[in-house]
Design a protein around this nucleic acid. Structure first.
Length: 588
RNA sequence: CGGGGUGUAGCUUAGCCUGGUAGAGCGCCUGGUUUGGGACCAGGAGGUCGUAGGUUCGAAUCCUAUCGCCCCGACCA
């Protein structure tokens, strides 16, 4: 039992100027966090209590799913990362020590990085400690602070430079085992979010820099989320980077060529829109859009319908470590023209040898005979047939889906909504174990790379996502299991020994029943106490006032309801114990 | 990193355009009256106006630089 005036709950009437979204404002107003700098927050006592509850629930569910908790350093020798598969991509967002390191009296200063996750630490550890299939599978996890030098921290804890995350790493002997470990974690995640009391849906996700073969994100639907979830009523759900649609029917037959490829002059026409306008009038979805990217130093071509947008993340499937748009200076020597006149018709590249490939989005098959750039400034070509004319290395899915397109599973129209990513699971395969030569020996004395998976839950982000999903105009409405306290006893007249005595007694009853109790015995007016009570969102409120005491009653009110129960003193203890027990049972 | 904005008391802010003694609300302190949904009265403390230069008789205000923060974009394990 904590007493408000001896505890520390600094609430604010007004929102800080730098908070824009509801959950961020409430985090600060309810005294849960205070800002140190961009993306850096102190967890105040109330906020810390929520974090501890989230942490404990997470620990229990991950353990139940097979996880074994440990703790790794957050300062890593840079060598661990240099040896790993994603150093080139990850170094951009990592905090690093100054490698010059001068002035410390040492001839050479070792370089360190702050860990954004720990594949680079756990994989060498497991390599060292586990050598036999008999010791597999294993799944190690920790709940700890993570560091990412975000380009743009925002929305309070939503995208912070320092944050708390649960990260787990599974090691299996076989791919089947890895799949099992993966789905054990998926199920543990579902239990975690359910117990927390937040609605989070699993969506198919892109594997991004992590690499690996498949992946799910756990998204809390919210308008302010910075990810788009594409879904259909039939149950399909994927994030924007990964989502596909069934644009090309399975039995689609490519159109037959209608004539020879023919060049025509298009002076000054360098956009899809310009070619779609008079006098050319080539509809955007009958044009081939030719984009040039650079993958690991070598240019490559991507072809889309003119009406489609490239989803850059999908280039990840091509296997390059780093991808970026090519510059004009890089494009011209390879293709022979500037952007606006590019195409991929066979034999029109100035130097096709320089290209790492020509990758075509499936949807261009719908074009049949279309128009594209001639790789000669000021000229396009028409009657371009996909199979006959284009120099395609490989087809793939590169376009960004649009709402209304058919769901790849059911054909129903796809819909979009925003979400907050609170968890992510990856099946990694052997991407990391190969890099570190992390192997075990099987029963045939053969060595194999570990089949790995990695799993993350943003604990601090989840705290904010809960608030975003569960608040009203008066403040936070905490779900029972993560509320900093479950019962708030408002003593309106703290000078009354009778009232304080009753508060003590009821507090003990609630604690006995399994609730954490906060007693507001401040010398404040009732209005102040009620406003603060609503703001900090404790699920169950007991009000002890002198008027009520005279009539022999106290009030019982749930934060998520308007109903106030006036309970006779003779019944309150039993009623309180029963209410707490019921709330606990419902949230279990 | 590109675009936009902003920095004045613990918090929210006015004043800046058009230079001339830095104001308010909340919060805080003292006293009094109040006491069931952010009370009232009286008194009080608290600001080198982000920082550094410059222009000027005079700068919160104009100019330059710099730092921080916020938003949009890019980016995002």
């Amino acid at each position: 039992m904590k007493f408000w005036s001896q505890y520390f709950v600094p609430t604010l009437k007004e929102s800080p100027a730098d908070a824009e979204i509801a959950s961020h404002k409430l985090l600060v107003r309810a005294g849960l966090v205070r800002k140190l700098g961009g993306g850096l927050y102190t967890y105040m006592p109330l906020g810390l209590r929520v974090m501890q509850k989230l942490t404990q629930i997470c620990r229990e569910e991950i353990e139940a799913g097979g996880g074994i908790e440990l703790w790794m350093p957050h300062v890593h020798p840079v060598e661990n990362w240099e040896q790993g598969p994603r150093w080139a991509a990850a170094r951009e967002i990592m905090f690093r020590t100054d490698s010059a390191g001068a002035g410390k009296g040492r001839s050479k200063e070792p370089e360190f990085v702050l860990g954004p996750t720990h594949e680079e630490v756990i994989t060498p550890l497991v390599k060292q400690e586990i050598t036999s299939y008999r010791d597999l599978p294993k799944n190690f996890f920790q709940i700890a602070t993570k560091f990412r030098n975000e380009i743009r921290p925002r929305f309070g804890l939503m995208r912070a430079r320092e944050f708390v995350m649960m990260d787990a790493y599974s090691f299996d002997a076989t791919d089947d085992g890895a799949v099992k470990s993966y789905f054990a974690m998926k199920s543990a995640y579902e239990k975690f979010f359910k117990r927390v009391g937040v609605r989070a849906i699993a969506v198919e996700a892109d594997t991004g820099v992590m690499g690996g073969s498949f992946s799910h994100e756990f998204m809390v639907p919210a308008e302010i989320g910075d990810d788009d979830v594409i879904y259909s009523d039939a149950g399909y759900a994927a994030n924007r980077e990964k989502a596909t649609s069934a644009l090309v029917p399975k039995d689609f037959a490519d159109a037959a060529p209608v004539g020879a490829v023919e060049e025509f002059a298009t002076p000054g026409v360098v956009t899809i829109a310009a070619l779609a306008a008079a006098p050319f009038n080539v509809a955007a979805d009958q044009q081939f859009k030719t984009l040039v990217y650079v993958g690991d130093g070598k240019p490559f071509v991507v072809i889309l319908r003119g009406s489609d947008e490239l989803e850059e993340a999908k280039l990840g499937s091509l296997g390059f470590t780093l991808c970026r748009a090519a510059t004009s200076e890089e494009i011209e020597p390879a293709l022979g023209a500037k952007p606006g006149s590019l195409g991929a018709v066979k034999g029109t590249f100035k130097n096709g040898e320089a290209l790492a490939g020509v990758f075509a989005d499936h949807a261009i098959r719908l074009i049949g005979n279309g128009t594209t750039g001639a790789n000669k400034d000021g000229f396009h070509v028409r009657n371009v047939n996909v199979t006959r004319d284009l120099a395609i290395t490989k087809f793939g899915d590169f376009r960004r889906v649009r709402p209304g397109e058919p769901c790849p599973q059911s054909g129903q129209p796809l819909q979009v909504r925003r979400g907050i990513e609170v968890g992510h699971i990856f099946k990694l395969g052997t991407k990391y174990s190969e890099k570190y030569n992390a192997v075990y020996t099987d029963d045939q004395k053969q060595t194999h790379f570990f089949e790995m998976g990695c799993y993350g839950i943003g604990i601090s982000r989840t705290m904010q996502a809960v608030i975003e999903q569960s608040h009203d105009p008066d403040g936070i409405v905490w779900p029972w299991n993560v509320a900093p306290f479950q019962v708030l006893i408002c003593v309106l007249d703290p000078d009354s020994p009778e009232a304080m005595g009753l508060a003590q007694k009821l507090g003990a009853v609630a604690e006995q029943a399994g609730a954490d109790v906060l007693v507001d015995e401040r010398a404040e007016r009732p209005g102040v106490k009620f406003k603060d009570a609503d703001l900090i969102g404790i699920p169950l409120r007991i009000t002890i006032g002198s008027k009520g005491l005279k009539d022999g009653i106290v009030e019982l009110k749930a934060r998520n309801s308007k109903d106030v129960a006036k309970v006779p003193l003779a019944e309150i203890e039993a009623r309180l114990a029963a209410t707490v027990a019921e709330a606990k049972a419902k949230s279990a």
